[in-house]
Design a binder for these strands. Structure first.
Length: 356
DNA sequence: AAATCGTGGAA
DNA sequence: TTTCCAAGATT
């Protein structure tokens, strides 16, 4: 075992994180936590993790659920393909592995939504497998500790880091603590800004520190300009129900419930009658909402309308009516939830104005 | 191989 | 306000 690994393991024992809800848990919980933690901070995940487990306490419960119910528990967490893949994988575990989570990293990685690093993490935590992780924490730690230049996302850089990671692995029995140590070091000491090098267990061997390059490593990722998009949504209310469509599986917000999007050049009422068979009366337009994604900016506008009449069978081929009281537990993207909340609170204000 | 896929926290 | 990016995977 390397000196680097030995120091990390000892440090984790004394100063690492030991109170995370998924630490030392069964494979299902470790798996769930690893998926939720992909590109997502611990503080954001904890609440989602607890709620998800209450609703789906084991793999069998998850496999038996509908995709929409799974997405509802994921609503607001983002990267919804993670939830769809998790759900698919649960069914595979039930059917192909008899409900027992596979133990080999190669088998684990075959499951949808699980790549090399996530498979390694699960295998190391749950089965002491000697498989290395390479996440954002490890890339940052390695870039500094070993003075590794280059875009951490570039293939060449990644390949060097995978080799380094493999070479540093301790004995099997130490794999859970070592894997956790790498994550803890990156998350608590070797942070992106203002790293706490004075407390670092491997500061003495750190190349970046010796060369005074801590601030410039890892190299910043190449950034691109975000295109600006805009969308107009139809919030069609029928009593206390609003009409929502299920997004296609590919693309943004796949599988989630979203109001119909009106083409930019269409007259809302005409389009609505033609496409959905709904007769609507325009009520008001909400204040525009700007939502920033990783790769584009979306300016959202929403037209609040009221449905005239009651027979709307044509609409139900495209989507569903959802009661206002059901929205809290529905599979909505975060900005759509904001829009619907805004529509409801402005409606309440209008009602109280009338009452006065 | 480069693009796509969310959201919110931190500086 | 802007910028960066977090326990990455998929195509």
């Amino acid at each position: 075992m390397s000196d680097f690994s030995r120091r990390l393991i000892a440090w984790q024992h004394k100063h690492g994180r030991h109170d995370l809800p998924w630490s030392g848990a069964d494979p299902y919980r470790v798996w769930l936590s690893e998926i939720m933690l992909q590109q997502t901070q611990v503080a954001t995940v904890v609440g989602y993790f607890e709620r998800f487990l209450v609703r789906f306490p084991d793999i069998a419960a998850l496999a038996a659920a509908s995709q929409e119910d799974v997405l509802a528990l994921w609503s607001g967490l983002g990267y919804y393909a993670r939830a769809r893949n998790l759900h698919r994988a649960a069914r595979i575990v039930m059917e192909q592995y008899g409900g027992q989570f596979p133990r080999q990293p190669e088998q684990i990685q075959q499951l949808p939504g699980i790549g090399r690093s996530t498979a390694a993490a699960i295998a190391a935590f749950c089965f002491n497998a000697r498989s290395p992780i390479l996440d954002g924490n490890v890339k940052r730690v390695f870039a500094r500790q070993f003075g590794m230049d280059g875009d951490p996302a570039a293939r060449a850089t990644e390949e060097r880091m995978w080799q380094t990671a493999q070479a540093l692995l301790p004995a099997a029995a130490a794999m859970p603590r070592y894997t956790q140590a790498l994550m803890d070091l990156g998350a608590t000491l070797c942070t992106r800004s203002r790293p706490r090098c004075d407390q670092c267990p491997v500061a003495a061997s750190c190349v970046a520190r010796a060369e005074n390059r801590v601030a410039e490593l890892p190299s910043p990722r190449a950034r691109r300009v975000k295109p600006n998009k805009s969308a107009r949504y139809l919030l069609a209310w029928r009593g206390d129900e609003v009409f929502l469509e299920i997004r296609p599986p590919a693309g943004i917000w796949g599988g989630l419930l979203v109001p119909p999007e009106i083409p930019p050049d269409a007259v809302a009422a005409d389009w609505c009658r033609r496409e959905l068979g709904l007769n609507v009366a325009f009520e008001r337009e909400l204040a525009p909402l700007r939502h920033v994604f990783t790769h584009f900016v979306l300016d959202m506008r929403a037209l609040v309308c009221r449905v005239q009449g009651s027979a709307n069978l044509a609409a139900e081929a495209h989507g569903r009516w959802v009661k206002a009281g059901q929205l809290a537990g529905a599979a909505l993207p975060a900005p759509v939830r904001l829009l619907l909340d805004a529509a409801l609170s402005s409606a309440r204000r209008a009602d109280s104005d009338i009452a006065e």
